[in-house]
């Protein structure tokens, strides 16, 4: 097979696996309530608090951006990470594993689908927040904004792809990890306040979660005047680190996927239902 034929085959696999998620957004409209309306309540609580305290006006925007980004974090934890676990139960996992394409394509398709679906939710949160709370965002460097967002997503979903194999390996215990990681990351990544407030070292530690720097970068780009005051690192530096994280997580997800598959082939446990 030629190289280009191989690429086309794998792109088809990505599209195939992304499709159910993309379609799910249209066929199950109940997500609008659960995934958009409910997060907005938390966002609203912070906004009223900041308003009551007479905080600088960009804080309202910070919170809404954070609220929109929670959608991605929840999607990573509750969908990407546990995906293989559920696919095993339905028998889909075996079918992915015997397919003649790179299993990274299938995993990648899962990420692309999740990303699409979640971008819809996040945009809805953003738009509603902007309208309801009268937020103004300035678009000074759109290219940088797009770059930061895309690289954040690649590294975040790379992390999710890694979680997918790890969760399957560790089974139920790992599942509890999702619970454990939800709220603390809201704090550590600064979903509702600038991460700089945590202090340099805590913020640096939290930066292993790509959303930390991604969110900080987006806030700086939407509010360039206050970037020096509230921004954690220069946006350019954040972009470089995020590119590094993308490469790291994509490699780690491939490694853990291979490890998971080999362990499954040896022990025979990973393709067995209800074990």
């Amino acid at each position: 097979m030629t190289g280009s034929a191989w690429i086309v085959q794998n792109l088809r696999a990505v599209r195939g696996r992304a499709y159910p998620r993309v379609l799910g957004a249209q066929r199950e409209p109940s997500w609008i309530f659960f995934d958009v309306a409910l997060p907005l309540l938390t966002v609203a609580a912070y906004i009223y608090m900041y308003k009551f305290m007479d905080a600088p006006k960009e804080f309202v925007g910070f919170v809404i951006l954070g609220g929109a980004m929670t959608a991605f974090w929840l999607n990573i934890l509750w969908s990407m990470a546990s995906q293989f676990y559920w696919e095993k139960e339905t028998g889909n996992l075996s079918l992915f594993l015997i397919a003649p394409v790179s299993r990274m394509s299938i995993l990648g398709g899962m990420a692309v689908g999740g990303l699409f679906f979640t971008t819809l939710r996040a945009s809805a949160t953003l738009v509603i927040g902007i309208v309801v709370f009268g937020v103004t965002l300035s678009l000074s460097s759109p290219l940088m904004l797009i770059a930061i967002f895309l690289v954040t997503m690649v590294s975040l979903y790379g992390m999710g792809m890694m979680f997918a194999s790890l969760y399957l390996l560790f089974g139920r215990e790992a599942y509890n990890m999702s619970n454990l990681m939800t709220e603390p990351i809201y704090l550590a990544s600064g979903f509702y306040f600038p991460v700089k407030a945590l202090g340099y070292w805590a913020a640096a530690g939290a930066s292993i979660i790509p959303i930390t720097l991604g969110l900080d970068g987006l806030r700086q780009l939407f509010y360039p005047e206050s970037s020096a005051q509230y921004g954690f690192l220069p946006v350019g530096t954040e972009l470089v680190i995020l590119v590094g994280l993308s490469v790291l997580f994509l490699i780690l997800s491939k490694v853990s996927l291979d490890y998971m598959e080999n362990l499954g082939k040896t022990t025979g446990r990973l393709t067995l239902r209800w074990q």
Binding site: R12, A13, G16, Y19, P20, N92, L95, P100
Partner: peptide, 21 residues
Amino acid sequence: ISGYGLLTVRENLWMFSQFYG
């Protein structure tokens, strides 16, 4: 019980065929 319940029969079969490129 493979596949996804919210897909139609045709979509589901198509999806699996895509894993074979």
